[in-house]
Amino acid sequence: MQTSYAELPNLVIRSANGVDYAYRDTGGHPDQAPIVLLQHFRGNLDYWDPALIDQLARTRRVITFDNAGVGGSTGVPADTVEQMARDAIDFVTAIGLSRTDLLGFSIGSFAAQEIALRRPALVRRLVLASSAPKGAPGMHGWAPEVIAAVGAPEPSPEGYLTVFFTGSADSQQAGKETLGRIFGSRTQDRDEMADWATREAQYDAVCTWGIPDHAALERLAALEMPVFVANGDSDPMILPRYSYLLAGLIPQARLKIYTDAAHGFLFQYHDEFAADVAEFLS
């Protein structure tokens, strides 16, 4: 019987770079490539919606982890996406994977792109949720109201609901249910919260990634693996137009935009998104 994500133990593995990475592993499905998830801005192991992970784990071994210096992992939080990617590769190598699928969410999707470009033999298929390419015009930092909502010293449920969900009654209800699962499903042995140094380093990485650079967009033509690009139609943090841009630049990309959804579309539509990912990966 499948163990719920909320009940998985926190594991630790030391990599060749000397970092102790905190992670969780659903196990199972040895005949399939595992899927490694890369988390959003300031997120840790507990900021994944357990409902989404449990659905993904029906067909795949799912591995979540804290990158270096984030949450329960030791080391220094990376202040560039390139360093995030190098650290993530060190983690994947440490747990003994030579071939995997990647699902990157938000800043995690930036790192996922970089991993696929840097180590293409490692990545079988790639899922980019709420993503944007390096150098895209208009991506140099987030709108003031967005960074105020999710970048404050003490994050709030109200800020989360504002950015991750739309203002509609249905989306807000989905957001409250998501928060209930994220903070209510696991009450013991929770992961450490990301600290202010992580917030600062990750926002530096976001801003550097977003410096306009038309030439950087051409890098994506090198991605030869199939890629699933997805977003909500009302994401205020990483606008949907960047999903269309990604899909146009990546040779084997498919695109889906979820209606009445914002940055947290994958939690709002956890069943549908998990089914879409399972179909894509298969």
Results as ranks from 00 to 15, higher is better:
Ala68Arg: 02
Ser98Asn: 15
Asp54Glu: 05
Gln39Glu: 11
Phe110Asp: 06
Ser130Arg: 00
Gly69Ile: 02
Leu97Met: 14
Glu154Tyr: 12
Gly175Gln: 03
Gln173Ala: 15
Arg58Ser: 11
Val127Phe: 02
Leu102Asn: 04
Ala169Ile: 15
Gly75Pro: 11
Thr93Pro: 02
Gly141Leu: 07
Thr162Ser: 14
Ser168Ile: 13
Lys176Val: 11
Ala112Gly: 03
Ile107Lys: 06
Arg118Gln: 15
Pro120Ile: 08
Gly75Gln: 08
Leu97Lys: 02
Ala68Phe: 02
Thr178Met: 15
Thr74Pro: 06
Ala112Phe: 05
Gly138Trp: 12
Glu158Tyr: 08
Arg99Lys: 12
Ser73Leu: 03
Lys176Ala: 13
Lys134Gly: 06
Ala51Asp: 10
Val62Glu: 06
Asp79Phe: 02
Ile182Gly: 05
Ala94Asp: 12
Leu179Gln: 13
Ala57Ile: 05
Ala88Asn: 08
Arg124Val: 10
Arg61Pro: 04
Thr64Val: 06
Arg118Ile: 14
Arg181Tyr: 07
Phe165Pro: 07
Arg118His: 14
Gly96Pro: 05
Asp46Ala: 03
Pro50Phe: 04
Val123Glu: 00
Arg99Ser: 11
Ile89Leu: 11
Thr178Ser: 14
Gln173Arg: 14
Arg61Asp: 04
Asp90His: 10
Asp170His: 08
Leu122Tyr: 06
Arg118Val: 15
Asn44Phe: 01
Glu145Tyr: 05
Leu38Met: 10
Ala132Ser: 15
Gln173Glu: 14
Ala149Lys: 00
Pro77Asp: 13
Thr64Asp: 04
Trp142Thr: 09
Leu128Thr: 01
Val70Leu: 08
Ala112Ile: 04
Thr93Glu: 10
His140Val: 13
Gly180Phe: 12
Asp49Asn: 09
Val81Gly: 06
Gln113Tyr: 08
Arg61Thr: 04
Phe105Gly: 00
Thr162Met: 15
Arg60His: 13
Ile89Met: 12
Gly75Asn: 07
Val76Phe: 05
Ala68Thr: 06
Pro133Gly: 07
Lys176Leu: 15
Phe105Arg: 01
